[in-house]
Amino acid sequence: MNGPVSEQAITRIEILDATFRPADHAEQLSQNDSDNGALVTFTGMVRDLVENPVNAMYLEHYPGMTEQALETIIATARQRWVLGHVTVIHRVGMLYPGEPIVFVGVTSRHRREAFEACQFIMDFLKMDAPFWKKEYTPEGERWVEAKSSDSQAAQRW
């Protein structure tokens, strides 16, 4: 980590094979952190839409590179904003509608840094982190296609 960080600023990255509870990670971020007045979290979940029914989703990843890519993204965020704790949790394996896929939590002294860093981390995770989603639908299996709106989102930074 570069830049002015409190000694207690912790980065946690977990790639998990089983479902997790975003609320537990949000709670953990807010404990023992009286320096920071702001906590911003984002949770991405598996959707099952009438116009795009999904029975299950498989998340593939590149072990080793995923952790490194997330570390690099978080380190870049820490250079840009003074942050407290940062946690990124991402599922791999089989997921079902309603389950959380990704959780990003950021603390900072005041809210601006936490809001911006949380969005930055998600925008770059969408573009650079080696995960691939495969949907299992009533009509068969389908790999999710990358969206140009995601690479455009990262460019605004």
């Binding site: 991405g44 998340l59 990843h61 590149y62 590179m65 991402h90 896929i101 990704v102 998600m122 995770l125 969408k126 573009m127 650079d128 982190a129 080696p130 995960f131 691939w132 989603k133 790999w143 999710v144 296609e145 990358a146």
Partner: peptide, 10 residues
């Protein structure tokens, strides 16, 4: 060296 499609995580 790894080859892969554009990523779709998050």
């Amino acid at each position: 060296v790894a080859f892969f499609p554009p990523v779709t995580g998050g």
